[in-house]
Design a protein around this nucleic acid. Structure first.
Lengths: 335, 335
DNA sequence: TCTTTCTCCGTTATCGTTATTATTTATTTT
DNA sequence: AAAATAAATAATAACGATAACGGAGAAAGA
């Protein structure tokens, strides 16, 4: 691989001139420029960005911590991140954490060794190891979709989760449902709490109450949705509608309900959350909350790039708008 | 951020000793080791990997070119890649190409500027720009899942696509189907050709023939699957079974078929390909070909790491085994 | 004509780490 | 105790690009 010295030698100028020619051609005379570019052409020279980054002390990369890339919602968020990153000459290091703290520590550590200039956390945990706390304080970090519990010092780009869940509740109440079940995500997640709060808020306002026994924890997977539905169906008095905190669980729930010989929404209405691509191709097509996944990612990345540039983020908490997409998995209560 | 010099100063040794202590502690005496480690602790020193990489001339990163991260099959492959990479201290740069050549060139270019030590291409195109051909020849590259058309010089880790499609055909023939439709992927893709070949092979052996009018191109998306099904349903004599070259298209096709008031598999059998998570939660659960997605990724990464290490790959063409998963979307032909 | 200003370009220090070579110190052997 | 050997550590030159600085020469102004 040829280096800048070789190009300099070949074109009879100094390395500085070659560097200038490539970084800002206006700084060199047209003749020199031409000679240098010709030499670049001949040698097939490509600047060694490892050296450039080292020299500038920046990696021009960010690491994205995601619990599971195979989750369609997260992968859409990542697309948004990637797009915004590329637009500004940044690249994305993928940190699939599988929800494991060790892996989070490992990937977050990349920002401490200059392998990444910042990080985006899609999970709700503080990603650094205890021992790295001190150093980590200076690492640009943005939370997207989720919120790090008990730490308000990092910018967050999230959905109006509370509002969205309220909209779901209002929708179901309007359809006449009075006894509702909820399949949540992990109880530790702030967004789960937000959504639950928004949902209950509306119920209370309608003089309804959420029966504690109709509140089951899921893990944002289809199989946990199926299990959750199973639990709800075998309750003393099963609900006439189930709010699932993501689409996968809703799909799992519907699968289980139909397996039991019941119909959706005939016997039970089901509402999801996220509006992943698959939602509209289900049978029945899923009523759900549309999250602007790519925009969430893009905004998070833009905020992060601002922080990396040394500017404090414009806003600490960006709340994006949701959209209730009413399809056919929710219908009038027939009880 | 503290550097190695500071640690050296604090512990009263040379920078070389600090470096040795961290790379191979056996090379320094226990007393010095202790002092150095104490200084590391105190300063919170973390070696600057940007500098280490620069010094060693390697980035310890690979770039993965994927047409679409949001595709569940690809994201599973990526998980495998990421896992194998992490196991060997490598990181994964995400190159979502959206199938666009410019983006492929951009990301492939990272391997020419030492930002990546190698690349994995999940699409069927030669990813480098024309002008980079010469330099690119020395870049370690592996093809996974797909195969670069007209270029046998790169190692490939793929499924036995031909065999898998044959298995699908045998399954459908065994169920009594004689008139079959196929929704393929883009015609340029070698795996599409392989699968078609395998499918037709069995048909011919059974004295059947694939009616050209029942062969439609899809784009591996649900909506293209729906369109494909629409086309097939409105044919003069519609097929009694449809083989879709991935699960998304199968899901789209089933959606469309049911929308028309027909039943799957009652009226039409549908078979997919990939066995993504969603397949088993569909209604009806999808008969499909299980691809060991994570293993494909893992094997591709392992091969790539071998090449990066300077060893020629053990095998140029790794063909992994498929598994025909028979669920309920395929049934006896009732014509 | 003599400054002054500006354009263009070369010299060189620098970034943080590692590898090589040289030197010191400790240990063993005679 | 001297010599030979081994172990531990230090000094320093890379790696490739950039940026700060300065010098040379041309153009512009006095």
């Amino acid at each position: 691989m040829s280096n800048i010295r070789e190009v300099a030698r070949l074109s009879g100028v100094s390395v500085a001139t070659v560097s200038r020619t490539l970084k800002d051609p206006r700084l060199v005379s047209p003749q020199t420029r031409e000679r240098v570019l010709k030499a670049v052409e001949e040698t097939g020279y490509r600047p060694n960005l490892l050296a450039r980054n080292f020299s500038s002390g920046k990696s021009y990369a960010v690491v994205v911590l995601v619990p599971n890339v195979a989750n369609p919602f997260f992968s859409k968020v990542i697309r948004g991140i990637e797009q915004a990153a590329q637009d500004q000459g940044y690249s994305v290091l993928l940190g699939d954490t599988q929800g494991k703290p060790e892996r989070e520590h490992f990937y977050a550590g990349m920002a401490l060794t200059s392998q990444a200039d910042g990080l985006i956390q899609l999970d709700c945990r503080y990603p650094f190891a205890e021992k790295d706390m001190a150093l980590a304080a200076s690492v640009p970090m943005v939370n997207a979709c989720e919120r790090i519990a008990d730490d308000a010092s990092y910018p967050v780009v999230e959905l109006d989760n509370r509002g969205a869940a309220s909209a779901v509740a209002r929708h179901l109440v309007a359809l006449g449902h009075r006894r509702m079940g909820v399949i949540t995500g992990p109880a530790t997640s702030p967004i789960v709490r937000d959504r639950l709060a928004g949902f209950c808020e509306v119920l209370r306002a309608s003089n309804l109450e959420l029966d504690e026994s109709l509140l089951v924890n899921g893990e944002f997977t289809m199989s946990s949705g199926a299990r959750g539905a199973e639990t709800l169906l075998s309750a003393n008095r099963p609900p006439s509608a189930i709010f699932c905190m993501n689409d996968e669980m809703a799909i799992g729930a519907i699968h289980q309900i139909k397996k039991k010989g019941l119909s959706v929404p005939g016997d039970i209405s089901v509402v999801g959350f996220d509006n992943i691509e698959f939602a509209s191709f289900m049978d029945p097509p899923l009523t759900t909350i549309d999250q602007p996944a790519e925009e969430l990612g893009r905004r998070a990345m833009e905020t992060l790039l601002q922080m990396i540039a040394g500017n404090p983020p414009e806003q600490k908490r960006a709340k994006l708008a949701f959209d209730l997409v009413i399809r056919e998995s929710s219908g009038e209560c027939r009880d």
